[in-house]
Design a protein around this nucleic acid. Structure first.
Lengths: 227, 227, 227, 227
DNA sequence: CATGAATGAGATTTCATTCAT
DNA sequence: TATGAATGAAATCTCATTCAT
């Protein structure tokens, strides 16, 4: 093999990255959007190091120069993609309206959402994976992302407080730790799905396997939360 | 900036990769070992794509040509490093003798071990992270790694059975799922420590944060296992 | 493919290069001979530039160092192989005893021999091919090869003279030119057999094609020689 | 000596490869053409394996990267050079208008052309030589070259038919075989000119030698064709 | 006589980015 | 705004040859 890169063919990027959209001559907004989507797909497929600027431009049906025009350079483009990905998941989360649900139902819904979001947005995991390999070098430059999680943590805190008051939940749970555990129980399964599948000799992405895992994740968290 | 790679300087690789060991002229075994250790450090620092063959040779105090002599090429070297890493964690696990402990104590010990192994071997996470970016392309070629986890699963199964018999644990727990959950609750914290720290505005690698997290991980799993 | 070389896999080298012969410890003559045969095969397969010293040593079942011990370096080894190849064809030629045959029969035998020698010793063509690419750089250093052809030319001269005297042949033929024409009519077919086969969309190495060609070569030369 | 390659300095490439032409900034067509010409010269000088990509770029006055931009890689560039060489000789052939000449005159003209083309285009021989060392690996990928020879064969067939009708030629001659013989009688002289010159202790590229050989080639073919 | 580990120079190829139009 | 040709630096990998044993 000639060159080794971070490539991981066929990782898929969900429905966000469909056709590159028509060439869009003289439509700056369209061009910018095309590049961003193409970059999301490419970075998710191959990681930051493995992604190719030429490939992104081609996927976007745009000229390479435009990429630099709109985003500065490859790394800044990566950050833009990251921010976009975080915005998406936040948008989805806020639409859950967990505060309107009873504690146990709300908690179950939150776990379900977390699990299924990762099922449908594998690119998100791959982006975070890449970014952590780089020690969050890019994210640290972002001003917007820091505030993204306060809302989520507030929601979890609200569920925990209401649940404890009603006697549904134990009362010694820290929202931040629980958030990490919920995510971890779901995320690790997907972030390491290839090595786990290989080691266990099973296809963890099969539909049945996913259902089993989702049920287990819910059982672990709710089981822990019992008073 | 000229070339962007998967570099993430100063990630550290634990105590395994100390000095490159004396030049060791005409000591094939030593040379091979030096290269393997240097590669572990380099791959963990920078990922597969970001690692530089020249750098590995230099770290190993060996000639670049030797790397190809002993390992074929960069990717096969990466696989050798992966196998070595898996062997290490397995070796540590078998030394736990969990079957000799009471169920709850054994389970607590297992979680503790899992958590602290990741604290002390951050390179392991980074290697798995890289390998999953590549969809376990290398690991799939390995014949040895598949059997590594059967022992661990047997141990967990033994703990669960004994615990259920004594009334310490609930009796509906699947060992494989639990293994993934234990690992996930610990692993995610470390694999995403940089993005999490950034988003939360806190240093999750601080000693106090680690202690809090370890206690929480134990609480989640043991809480869930309550009958 | 990683590196481009003069390789031409599976060109075959006839019966001279059979098994590498037993390791031959402490049998200098045997070792030398093994290396020479292995080199013949390797050079014929891949040309001078494409041949690999390691490969030759391996084919010979000998240590690489021995190669340098006996032959100095790669280029001198190539020359040794060339000389050996020329000696072989000369040996075969002198065994023809053309001077004992009638002119027409002798000439036919000579063409037949030339044609069939090339059929059975494709390595010879490939060695000459390589050497001419290098402008006979090696052969020019050889003291032995220059005298090799005087005998052949004398034989042809003898055939021509006797044939002209009997009225079988025209009497204006230069032996040297005829030698080149006989060889050329046969040689070109084989030296360019791959490009010719490709261009003509036929397999010129098929048995029927060879028979047709041999008959034609004889017809051309004997037709020309008619008085 | 460090590395041995297929180099054969100073082989010359005829008048096609003169000066590298002005740098030609921002003239893609010119750049492409410059690279192609430089590659022709370099490949003819040193063979496929011996040719150096750096050297080609330098000869072309172009950046090395452009070579890959326009031709993919070294081997594909070699194929492009081969196709170009075949196109040239075909173009020259069709300009002969042999069908307008009387059979004997036409045949003589064809032999003359073949002989003199090889005199003036030694690079053509060296390219074919290289390609045959590689078993026409590249040419087999070409779609265009297969049809190049049908025209030539048709011309020869036409000459033979007309000649036989007029009683100038014998009537049992296969055009394909004759084509190979004409080319062989000329080609071998040049393809092996270095080894032949060495063995015979004469300079076969001297003007007198060339004239002698040309006359002989014509005599052989026309002598054979006599009814 | 024999081994194979070690080496330095250099090969092809890749890539993010800039420049001329 | 948009194009894609051009670039320099650096990456992986190769190879004939020598050295220590």
């Amino acid at each position: 093999m000639a060159a080794v890169n971070e490539s991981a063919a066929g990782a898929g990027t969900g429905s966000e990255t469909t056709a590159p959209a028509p060439p869009a001559r003289r439509d700056p907004e369209r061009t910018r959007e095309n590049i961003l989507r193409a970059a999301l797909a490419e970075f998710a497929d191959k990681g930051l190091g493995g992604a190719r600027v030429d490939e992104i431009a081609q996927r976007a049906g745009a000229n390479k120069r435009m990429l630099y025009h709109y985003f500065g350079n490859k790394e800044d483009l990566f950050l833009a993609v990251l921010e976009r990905a975080y915005e998406r998941i936040r948008g989805a989360e806020t639409r859950l309206h967990l505060t309107e649900l009873e504690p146990i139902a709300g908690m179950r819904e939150l776990i379900r959402f977390t699990f299924n979001y990762l099922v449908e947005a594998p690119h998100f995991i791959r982006l975070l994976n890449s970014e952590n390999l780089h020690q969050a070098r890019h994210l640290k430059k972002s001003k917007r992302v820091r505030e993204l999680h306060s809302e989520m943590l507030a929601m979890i805190g609200d569920l925990l407080r209401r649940g404890a008051e009603r006697g549904d939940f134990r009362d010694d749970v820290d929202p931040t730790q629980l958030f990490i555990s919920i995510t971890g129980v779901c995320y690790f399964y997907f972030s390491n799905i290839h090595t786990l599948s290989t080691i266990m000799g099973a296809d963890l992405s099969a539909k049945a396997a996913l259902q089993t895992r989702e049920a287990h994740a819910i059982a672990v968290i709710l089981g822990y939360l019992r008073p």
